[in-house]
């Protein structure tokens, strides 16, 4: 066979990938040289004080201001971009931003998020557009606060707060439901469900063109949920005409 006639000194594919030195094919001598310190050795007085010189560090620190935080008696704010617990945001008129797309759940490397979407209907419109998140859970026993979900969210519904106190005695307690995660009502907002701002599309919402609650939305809630606690607040806010409806 032709293969057998091959010159044994010819490099083969195998030889090329084989390591030529133990420990890798790096440009490094095989025998490690003896240790040699690069710090110059002290001489004279320096050499005499060397054993206690370390206390000098301790001594000088005694006169510096202390930075120990007296948590939990004192709470120091975190850095602004600290990854704390999640929050599901709302639009200015109170509709939820989350559309239940599950992209956050998909992005989550720890499989901590569970979402079920559902259809909005004229009787129950929770978010602008066709779809909303009916079930939304984050399991804080699994979440590693990597923030990939925040990056995945197409509507900026999901963001992270700076809150980090997430310990608890029970498993259920650490699975946060949608109502636990939803952001507090913005001033003048009306609790969902209610119709979208008149004439607005979901894109208008997304572009930030809906800046307050419209009269029609308030009327709708007044008709179907007259006892809604957010009604008085929303009604007061809309009396200021500058705040009303969309601006475009």
């Amino acid at each position: 066979m032709a293969d057998d006639a091959r010159d044994p000194k010819e490099p083969t594919g195998d030889a090329e990938v084989a390591q030529t030195h133990p420990g890798g094919d790096l440009d490094r001598p095989v025998e490690a040289a003896g240790f040699e310190s690069l710090i110059e050795a002290k001489t004279g007085l320096g050499e005499m004080l060397a054993p206690v010189a370390g206390f000098g560090v301790t001594f000088s620190a005694m006169f510096r201001p202390t930075i120990t935080e007296q948590y939990p008696f004192e709470r120091v704010p975190t850095k602004p971009r600290f990854h704390g617990r999640h929050q599901l945001n709302r639009y200015a008129d109170g509709l939820e931003k989350c559309i239940g797309c599950e992209l956050c759940a998909w992005a989550c490397p720890a499989d901590a998020i569970y979402v079920e979407g559902a259809s909005n209907s004229p009787e129950a419109q929770f978010s602008p557009g066709e779809r909303y998140g009916r079930v939304y859970q984050i399991n804080y026993l699994r979440c590693i606060f990597c923030g990939l979900c925040i990056e995945a969210c197409p509507t900026r519904a999901l963001t992270m707060t700076n809150e980090f106190e997430l310990a608890g005695p029970t498993r259920e307690g650490l699975i946060w439901e949608k109502q636990d995660l939803l952001a507090p009502m913005p001033v003048g907002a009306l609790a969902a469900p209610h119709p979208m701002a008149p004439g607005a599309t979901d894109t208008d919402y997304y572009r930030g063109e809906v800046t307050g609650t419209a009269e029609e939305q308030i009327d709708w809630v007044r008709e179907f949920r007259p006892d809604d606690p957010t009604l008085p607040g929303a009604a007061t806010a809309t009396t200021a005409p500058a705040e009303q409806g969309r601006t475009r």
């Binding site: 239940g100 599950e102 759940a105 998909w106 079920e116 979407g117 559902a118 259809s119 066709e130 779809r131």
Partner: peptide
Amino acid sequence: YRFRSRPFD
């Protein structure tokens, strides 16, 4: 099946 789930579920 509308909005009920995603293929990865």
